[in-house]
């Protein structure tokens, strides 16, 4: 267990402290989803698990990709690949704000010296057909987290309501560690024999991906993959619920949702390549949203989504 009375020394220590904190508060500490996503919300542990009636509590780090934000590693704050820390608790507990503030203390933010504020910021994801009300949390004027009570996901009303916390890890860590450029941030303990900065780990990849995202990604291939992902997602969900081989009822929501995630990321790549016009944008977003809705519809037809076979108690 890391020591929360001293200031953290590195990016990874901040992550570890968050993991320990939320584990101690009863969350299942999950691992990142193994697909390219634009934000931690896309992880099925949030999108799908916020649906239906089953209680849920999970926390995890999610690497997130936003191709348009690439700056070849030169901008002090912008990255096309970054980390979000995500917490989802359903139903939202009455003391979620206090729990959240406790997590800030755990990573070394002294509430007696800093000015923490909850500033209105309603969250909406047009691609996921989701929205919620909440705040962006400010620490001394800087947005350190997003705090949302989910009201609707994939077109479904959330009952019960999930409380979602999203921390932008790099920005938060830079603030706590007093670093001005993300690439200069210590990734591991700077006293350690092989001390690594964030730049040591990611500077080169930022350059590579920025170039590829902006100039190289083959748009014809991307467009084709988008269409394929869309088609396949629908095919998966169209399959009968009863599996002829095992004789079991198996609704393949997660494999279908993977295709939805894929389509969403492909759209982001196409957007970064500048080949999507303003009018087309809405149409593409609508296509991804339609998939997200189908997945949501299917999820509530599964046990994890609260479905019970007829005649069950």
């Amino acid at each position: 267990m890391s020591d929360t009375t001293t200031a953290p020394k590195s990016f990874q220590e901040i992550i570890l402290r968050l993991q320990n904190y939320w584990a101690a508060k009863g969350c299942a500490v999950l691992q990142p989803y193994d697909m390219e996503v634009g934000a931690g919300t896309f992880h099925p542990a949030t999108t799908l698990r916020s649906l239906g009636t089953q209680p849920w509590a999970a926390a995890y780090v999610q690497p997130s990709r936003r191709p348009t934000d690439g700056r070849y590693g030169e901008n002090p704050n912008r990255l096309q690949h970054y980390y979000q820390y995500q917490v989802l608790i359903k139903p939202s507990p009455p003391d979620l704000q206090e729990l959240y503030l406790g997590s800030l203390e755990a990573i070394g933010i002294d509430m007696a010296l800093h000015d923490i504020r909850f500033v209105e910021d309603d969250w909406e994801s047009p691609t996921l057909g989701a929205w919620g009300l909440g705040w962006e949390v400010w620490c001394d004027g800087m947005e350190v987290s997003q705090f949302t009570y989910f009201q609707q996901v994939g077109g479904h009303d959330c009952h019960p309501v999930s409380g979602e916390l999203t921390y932008g890890l790099e920005r938060l860590a830079m603030y706590v560690l007093g670093v001005d450029h993300v690439m200069a941030m210590p990734f591991n303990d700077p006293q350690t024999p092989i001390a690594l900065t964030y730049g040591d780990v990611f500077k080169q990849t930022e350059e590579e991906y920025a170039r590829w995202n902006f100039d190289m990604a083959d748009t014809d291939v991307l467009l084709r993959h988008f269409d394929e992902a869309e088609t396949h997602c629908r095919e998966i969900l169209d399959a009968p619920h009863d599996d002829p081989k095992t004789g079991k009822r198996i609704v393949m929501v997660h494999p279908a949702y993977d295709q939805c995630i894929k389509a969403s990321h492909l759209f982001n790549l196409l957007d970064a390549r500048g080949v999507i016009s303003v009018t087309e944008r809405q149409a593409y977003i609508g296509r991804v949203r339609a998939l997200a809705k189908l997945c949501a519809d299917a999820f509530v037809q599964t046990a994890a989504g609260g479905w019970q076979p007829e005649g069950a108690a």
């Binding site: 704050n77 007696a112 010296l113 800093h114 620490c139 800087m142 603030y175 001005d180």
Partner: peptide, 24 residues
């Protein structure tokens, strides 16, 4: 800027943070 609390350092930490955010 208007903070929502008094602090032992008379707002020095808060102001430093705000100046930093503004610079970015």
């Amino acid at each position: 800027t208007v903070a929502n609390r008094e602090t032992a350092d008379n707002g020095a930490t808060i102001l430093a943070g705000n100046e930093k955010v503004l610079s970015a």
